[in-house]
Design a protein around this nucleic acid. Structure first.
Lengths: 286, 286
DNA sequence: GAAAATATGGAATTTTTGTTCCATCAATGA
DNA sequence: TCATTGATGGAACAAAAATTCCATATTTTC
C-alpha cells in the first residue's frame, strides 16, 4: 500500500510528532486505517481539543468507539499508546493559543493583507460574519415562527429561486428531502417552470427567494403563485423587493457585499434553520 | 478533626470557576494561605498551562511542594480536589482556543426567546459563525493561492458535487458564469455525468466538493478525473476524505453541526472567494 | 518556655485511567 | 460454501494518579 514510506513492519514506525504532521500523514495514507480506526482518527482530527484534554474513555464516547480502539489507533500510527498519541494534541494546545489569536486579529484589522488572495478570502469571511450577525440581530423570531407554521401546514412546498439565489433552493430541497418533506424544486433552468407552478394549490406553499437585481422569471412565478392563492414565504433582501407585496410572510436578509459580490452564507444558515424548524413543527403535529 | 461534613468555616465554599476569578480571589485574600500553600498557588497562577496539562505529581515537583499540598490548596480554596481545581485551568485553555465563544454565548442568551424556533435559529447562526471563524483561522493562504493559480490556468473548470454539497457547485457555476469563465456543472442529477467528465483533459481542471458521508458518485467521478490527469481542487471536510488523495490541492472546511445538521455558510464564503480570485488572477494574466 | 494549634512531608490507600486479552464478528479468497 | 485472516467490542487487568492519613515539624498563645 505504502509506496512513499519504507516500512519495516506495520506497527514499528516513527510517528508524527506534531499535529500538522499527523494530519498530513493520515491524509497521505488512505486505506491504512480500517473503519473504526478511521472513525476515531477523523474524530481526533476534527476535535483536537477533546483529545488533548479528555481521557481515553471520554474520547471514545465522543467518537462512538471503544477505548481499546483508541489504543489500537495509536499503535497503528506508531505511538506507544494513547498517552503518547495524546501528547501530540497537548503540545498543539500549548503553543497554539497565541498564534490563533494573532491570526484572528490580523484578519479583523488588516484586510489588505499580504497577497491579493488572502485579502479576498478575509474580505469574504468578514462579509459573511457581518451578514450573519446582522441577520441574527434583525430577524424577528415571531415572523420566523409564523413562516414555519405556514410551511408546516403545506402539502407540497414549492421551492422557487433562480440564478444567484438558486443554491438556497437547492440546499432546502436536499434538507427537506432528508427530512421526508415533499418539495418541488423550481428554477434549475430545465424549463416548463410555469406549468409546474400552476399545479400548486392553496393547500400547498412556496418558498420564493430572490435578491437584487430581482430575476424577472422568479417574480413572475411568484405572481402566478399569488394569483392562485398559494401561501408564499419570501426570502429577499429589502422591503422594496417586488416579492414583498406578493408574499404571505417575508424574511429580510441583507447579505454584506465584498468587492460587489455577495455570498449566501447568512441565507444558508437561515434556510437550514427554516427547513429543520418546519420538519420539527410537523413532527410535533402543530 | 477533618470530617467530610461541610463546615461553616470562615472561608470559601463556592470556589471561583474561572481563571480570572481565581486570580482575583487569591489577590484579594492575602494571608489566607500558609507558606507552602501560598507557594503552590503562586506557581499555579504563574504557570497555568502546567496545571491544566500536568498531573498533581508533576505540578508538585514544579512548585517544589508535595502532591498532598496541592490537594490541601484545592480544598482550602473550596474545590473538591485537585481535579476540580485543575478544571478551571483546563477551561481557560479551551476557551482561549476559541475567543468568540463568549460573544456567541452572549448572543445566544440575549436573543434566545423561549420558542423552539428561535433556539434553532440561534443555533444555526452560531454554528455558521463558528465555522467561518475556524475556517478563516485554519486556512493556509498559500494553499488557497496555489489552488487559485491552478484553476486560473484551466481551459474549462468542471464543477463536481452532489446532494448536500451541490449548492456549492451551483453557486460557483453562477459566479464563474457572470465572470465569463467557462465551467461545466456536473452533479445536478440529470445523468450522463460520467460521460461528461470523460471529456475533461489535463488542460482543464475540476473543483470537487464532498463531505461526510462522502457521496460515492462524487468520489467515482473524482477518480475518473484523476486517472485522466485532470488537476483537481477538492473542497472537503477532513484529511481522511477519499477526495484528499485524489486531489492536486485540497482545502479543508469543517462546518460546525447543529442538531446534526451542517449548513454551508463557511463553504459559501470560501467558494465565492475562490471564484472571484480565479477571475482576478486570470484578468491579471498570471 | 511549655502546651496547644496548625502546617507539612511522605507513605498508604483508593480511585481513575490506560492497556491487554480473548471471544465474536465481518471481510476475503479458495 | 467454507476456511482464513483481520477487525471489533467489552471484560479483566495493570499502571498511574489522586487522595487520605498520620507522625513530625513549625508556629502561636499563654
Amino acid at each position: 500500500m505504502n509506496d512513499t514510506v519504507p516500512e519495516a513492519s506495520s506497527e514499528t514506525r516513527v510517528p508524527p510528532r506534531t499535529f500538522e504532521a499527523l494530519r498530513q500523514f493520515i491524509a497521505a495514507h488512505p486505506g491504512l486505517l480500517p473503519k473504526r480506526l478511521s472513525q476515531a482518527a477523523q474524530f481526533a482530527l476534527a476535535n483536537p481539543d477533546e483529545i488533548a484534554l479528555g481521557t481515553a474513555a471520554s474520547v471514545a464516547t465522543g467518537a462512538g468507539v471503544q477505548p481499546s480502539t483508541l489504543i489500537r489507533l495509536a499503535h497503528q500510527l506508531g505511538y506507544q499508546g494513547f498517552s503518547d498519541f495524546q501528547s501530540v494534541f497537548r503540545d498543539r494546545l500549548k503553543t497554539r493559543a497565541s498564534v490563533y489569536e494573532d491570526r484572528l486579529q490580523r484578519i479583523e484589522h488588516d484586510v489588505a493583507g499580504d497577497t491579493y488572495e488572502s485579502a479576498l478570502l478575509n474580505g469574504f469571511f468578514r462579509a459573511a460574519r457581518q451578514s450573519i450577525d446582522s441577520l441574527s440581530a434583525a430577524i424577528d423570531p415571531n415572523d420566523f415562527a409564523s413562516a414555519v407554521s405556514l410551511l408546516a401546514r403545506a402539502d407540497t412546498i414549492f421551492l422557487v429561486s433562480k440564478r444567484r439565489a438558486f443554491p438556497l433552493a437547492a440546499q432546502m430541497s436536499y434538507t427537506f428531502g432528508t427530512l421526508g418533506i415533499r418539495t418541488m424544486l423550481v428554477g434549475s433552468g430545465i424549463g416548463v417552470e410555469d406549468e409546474i407552478v400552476r399545479t400548486a394549490t392553496p393547500r400547498d406553499a412556496a418558498i420564493v427567494c430572490s435578491f437584487e437585481p430581482y430575476t424577472p422569471g422568479t417574480v413572475e412565478l411568484a405572481q402566478t403563485l399569488a394569483e392562485a392563492d398559494v401561501p408564499i414565504v419570501a426570502i429577499t433582501d429589502s422591503a422594496l423587493s417586488p416579492l414583498a407585496p406578493l408574499a404571505t410572510h417575508w424574511i429580510e436578509v441583507s447579505e454584506q457585499a465584498f468587492n460587489g459580490f455577495r455570498s449566501l452564507s447568512a441565507n444558508m444558515a437561515l434556510s437550514m434553520a427554516l427547513s429543520v424548524a418546519v420538519a420539527e413543527r410537523r413532527r410535533l403535529g402543530a
